[in-house]
Design a protein around this nucleic acid. Structure first.
Length: 286
DNA sequence: TACGTCAACATGGAAA
DNA sequence: TTTCCATGTTGACGTA
């Protein structure tokens, strides 16, 4: 599903016009919008490569006189779709600006624009304009950092996982990169580190779980054995529990627990202390 | 060609 | 309001 936003003066406010999940025609604010959707499901790109994938044909509603141009073009192949520069000019000229939202994350479905949102978009667009100016306006190719660049970045990351603006500038100069690139690299690097950490932690917990399951099975088996033993030797079991080394009897509920043995959570442990393996207490060894 | 990696990006939230 | 960061996503590119 995609949300299309329109900021044309004819539309009283910036608003979500529609989603395209199941329709290609919509009538909004007296205007008839015909959506030419090519099925790629992508209207704007994170990267600044031309990505024309949809077009609007905005028609006058027969009953409504508006000053709207007959066509609202969201982008055509080769017209600089997604180009910040083109966007800037487009904004200047007009009018029927296209503001499209692509759901890049589950919570990012565009529904409205706050002031902060707009200023951010402007900032980012300006940043892209300056980037493209530096690149001579060429569509940006996938950058592959050299080994030397990566090594230096890694070194700096080991020292500090984040940079202050001065450090960023200096490092960017040193690497012949834009500060923005250094910033992005550090963001991605932090994300990778966190992901790795999460994976390690997941693996550790998985092993803990496995160990606990085994321990549980073993204890169940032991309990069964004790029960059958009780049936065979009832007199033995009539002894006071305190007489059994390492056990105390809870006076209120008669739960058998290890003497003064409770884990961090305060719960009772139904086994003599020396025999119970607590994987969490041994997590470092996993 | 499928798949993994990663630079670049979009977006929301927190802090100042 | 701005800045910074975390997080999720996209698409180029390398490789098996």
């Amino acid at each position: 599903m995609h949300s299309f936003l329109c900021s044309h003066p004819a539309v009283s406010r910036k608003e979500t016009l529609m989603d395209t999940s199941d329709r290609d025609d919509v009538r909004v604010a007296g205007l008839s919008l015909r959506l030419n959707y090519d099925g790629r499901g992508d209207l704007s790109g994170g990267d600044h490569h031309p990505r024309p994938s949809a077009g609007f044909k905005l028609e006058r509603s027969s009953s409504t006189a508006t000053s709207v141009e007959p066509y609202l073009t969201l982008g055509l192949p080769g017209d600089g779709w997604g180009s910040a520069k083109a966007q800037a000019e487009e904004d200047k000229a007009c009018s029927a600006s296209r503001v499209v939202g692509r759901p890049s994350s589950p919570h990012s479905m565009v529904s409205s624009f706050s002031g902060g949102h707009l200023s951010r978009i402007k900032r980012e667009r300006d940043a892209r304009v300056s980037d493209e100016e530096e690149d001579g306006g060429a569509a940006r190719k996938k950058l592959r950092l050299t080994k030397e660049q990566s090594a230096l970045l890694e070194d700096r990351f080991r020292e500090h996982s984040s940079l202050d603006p001065k450090q960023k500038q200096a490092l960017a100069g040193q690497l012949s990169l834009r500060p923005r690139q250094v910033e992005v690299w550090f963001q991605n690097r932090r994300a990778r580190t966190k992901l790795k950490k999460t994976e390690v932690e997941y693996e550790r917990l998985r092993k803990c779980c496995e160990t606990l399951r085994d321990e549980n099975r073993r204890l169940q088996k032991e309990l069964q054995e004790l029960k059958s033993f009780k049936l065979l030797r009832p007199r033995y079991m009539q002894l006071p529990a305190t007489a059994v080394a390492g056990f105390t009897m809870c006076p209120s509920c008669s739960t058998v627990a290890a003497a003064s043995d409770s884990d961090e959570s305060g719960s009772l442990v139904v086994a003599p202390k020396p025999r119970l393996f607590n994987p969490f207490a041994h997590s470092a060894s996993l």
